[in-house]
Amino acid sequence: MKNITTIFLVIFSTLAFSWVGLVLSSHLNLGGLEPTTAELDEEGNPIEGDTLNPQPLSGIARTGKDIYVDQGCIYCHTQQVRAKGFGADFERGWGDRQTVARDYIYQEKVLLGTMRTGPDLANIGARNPSKEWHYLHLYDPQATSQGSIMPPYPYLFEVREIGDTPSPNALQVPASSAFAPPAGYEVVPTERADALVEYLLALKIDYELPEMKNSQ
């Protein structure tokens, strides 16, 4: 009877130990990070007047992030650039610098990811700023990237009859696409596609942080 309490405590303590060691300590270490400037003054404080980075997402990009989350993009795409010399993240042009803990502080949900069935997206907005490309790529990945195994997202678009004049935001879907619209029809992004593309374009690591000096 009395033993169960003790056993409970032992079993619990082993896990509590790792939790304190891994989770809590990193929370203490990293949980208080604030945005800062690329250069610091002598006391290590941000320089007044310089831009503080990272910056939070705009409203529509936030909506786009929700779509990224509910479609499960994270299961094939990471959002992290590893240090030079570890993997080929730099050589593949996925980012100009390694990402660090501070880059993620404004993200209510951090989408580091663990799979690269597709390429890293930490810096996709800077790597490929073409809206048209992203729309077409989401509608039919094969149309922009022959041989891609990314799932198409036709349901984020609307196929509708062309009115008096074609819609200005209609996609230029090549006729060879498996999802090419029938004659007289056009493909128009829904609000969800707009938001998702806005989010992708907002993914940029185009600023410097002071810790980059030491770590590359």
Partner: peptide, 20 residues
């Protein structure tokens, strides 16, 4: 509070091993 709890747990592990 949780850190204190963590230490207590660790202590209890030693006690429990002693008990066992």
């Amino acid at each position: 509070l949780l850190i204190i709890a963590g230490f207590l747990f660790f202590l209890s592990a030693i006690i429990a091993l002693y008990w066992a």
